[in-house]
Design a protein around this nucleic acid. Structure first.
Length: 419
RNA sequence: CGGGAUGUGGUGUAAUGGUAGCAUAAACGCUUUGGGAGCGUUUAGCCCGAGUUCGAAUCUCGGCAUCCCGACCA
């Protein structure tokens, strides 16, 4: 993409009402825009990152048999009443249509997915089944905070699994733990993320959270020094020893909950009387699990972990572009033209090779400004074409996460970038 | 929801009762071109409402908005 075609622009200073790092960098770099507290627009660059995270999640969901659907955001009152959550779910946005119908804006989708699957699942032969969606959620948070970390409107991947018994649920639950760590590994958050025992809220007795260590986190977790299993502060009082290894030494960390998984059992299948016929002809309630992970929250968390004083440092897997191509100007028109021509050719060749490249074709910007913007945007590989490099038939290559600068012959560029 | 703070050009800031200023961004021109360039010209602002006052960005009241701490967090 040509940078001159990008309507978003970088700004030098973050708006004063953004105090947290992920929002400051994302807004300065032109990835997101704030509409209201906890409500953001994803601009072209930000949307590219978000979609890459979603793609990784989709691939990992496919690997655990997830079938993708898309449920509505408008959920009729009667569905919420069936589970008694119309009155008890504080964060539910309630809206009323012109003719008096009432809806809750989707904040979680048990009330939709249970009656949905009930229509199709009637026998043990239909189980297990796993359906998920990536969809916008609405929650009337009393207090939003921390940029993309806690919002009123946010994207979420929610997976729901349906089983014939607890044992089958248990084994799938373990599978999802591994799946989530694969996702986290692919977006470079694995090293900082701990499986954490937490309260089950109103869902179940306990749940497991995926907590990423960062000072921006809202939660306090206690990590077992022996086995790295963690316990959320909200239930730490119940444990003097690690439930996994009986270890007694813990260290305390601030962390952000990037994912949460629950064994729901029959909590939501019961109110809908969602039963199946077992092998022996008896009717049994379907057993259920739910598993959430938030793409936008992951995006914010990635920045909290991967940045320096100059800007964002995107992992390659989620970067909006792989390569940032920077031609510099020259006082000599002939040299300038040569730089331009060479850059255009590199741009075309990279595109042909399916390498995503952001081409800084702005001619009214000084080198300093281009470098500063490149550092802020955080694209993994920077290629500079200038008078200096062309004298040696070279371009300069620098990785965002490294200091060293390499000169590469232009003709060797393809093999250097592996295409 | 309790407590605290703040609202001034697109963004960041100054003016504390008396002509709204600076930086940056943007536009034009000339110069410049390896780490946010220089000069000149131009455009652009006091959150909303009421009150006090000769006079309000400034003081008072109300509203709205945003941030921070806490509580909450399916």
């Amino acid at each position: 993409m040509r940078q001159t075609r990008l309507f978003s622009k970088t700004i030098r200073e973050a708006p004063k009402d953004e105090k947290c790092l992920n929002a400051q960098l994302l807004i300065r770099a032109g990835f997101i825009d704030k509409l209201a507290a906890g409500i953001y627009t994803f601009l072209p660059l930000g949307l590219r990152v978000l979609k890459k995270i979603e793609k990784i999640i989709n691939e990992e969901m496919a690997a655990v048999g997830g079938e993708r659907i898309l449920m509505p955001g408008l959920i009729p009152k009667k569905n919420w009443e069936q589970t008694k959550r119309w009155k008890t779910f504080k964060e539910l946005y309630k809206i009323k249509g012109e003719s008096g119908q009432e809806y809750g804006l989707g904040s979680t989708h048990e009330e939709v997915v249970v009656p949905l699957l009930q229509k199709y699942v009637s026998s043990y032969k239909d189980l297990p089944c796993y359906v998920y969606q990536i969809q916008t959620k609405y929650r009337d948070e009393i207090r939003t905070k921390s940029g993309l970390l806690r919002d009123r409107e946010f994207g979420m991947k929610d997976l729901y699994s349906f089983h014939k018994d607890e044992k089958d649920l248990d084994s799938y639950y373990e599978k999802i733990k591994k799946s989530y760590f694969k996702i986290l590994k692919r977006i470079d958050l694995e090293n900082k993320t701990y499986l954490t025992l937490a309260s089950g809220g109103t869902f179940s007795k306990y749940s497991h959270e995926f907590q990423t260590i960062t000072p921006a986190g809202e939660d306090i977790i206690y990590i077992c020094e022996n086995c790295n299993f963690a316990i959320n502060k909200e239930i730490k009082g119940e444990y003097s020893k690690c439930p996994e290894c009986r270890g007694k030494k813990f260290r305390q960390e601030k962390a952000i909950e990037v994912g949460n998984i629950f064994k729901l059992g029959t909590k939501y299948t019961k109110p809908f009387n969602f039963e199946f016929t077992d092998k022996d002809g008896s009717k049994k309630l379907v057993v259920m699990g739910c598993y959430g992970i938030g793409p936008a929250r992951l995006m914010g968390t990635i920045i909290e972990i991967h940045h320096d004083e100059k800007g964002i440092i995107w992992p390659l897997s989620v970067a909006p572009f792989n390569v940032h191509l920077l031609p510099l100007g020259s006082k000599e028109e002939k040299i300038k033209e040569n730089i331009r021509k060479t850059s255009e050719k590199i741009y075309r060749d990279l595109q042909k090779a399916k390498i995503e490249v952001l081409y800084d074709d702005r001619e009214d910007k000084t080198p300093g400004e281009k470098f500063a913007d490149a550092d802020l945007l955080g694209i993994p590989i920077r290629i500079v074409v200038s008078e200096k490099t062309l004298q040696k038939n070279c371009v300069e290559i620098k990785k965002r996460n490294e200091k060293k600068i390499k000169l590469i012959k232009i003709k060797h560029l393809p093999q250097f970038l592996n295409f």
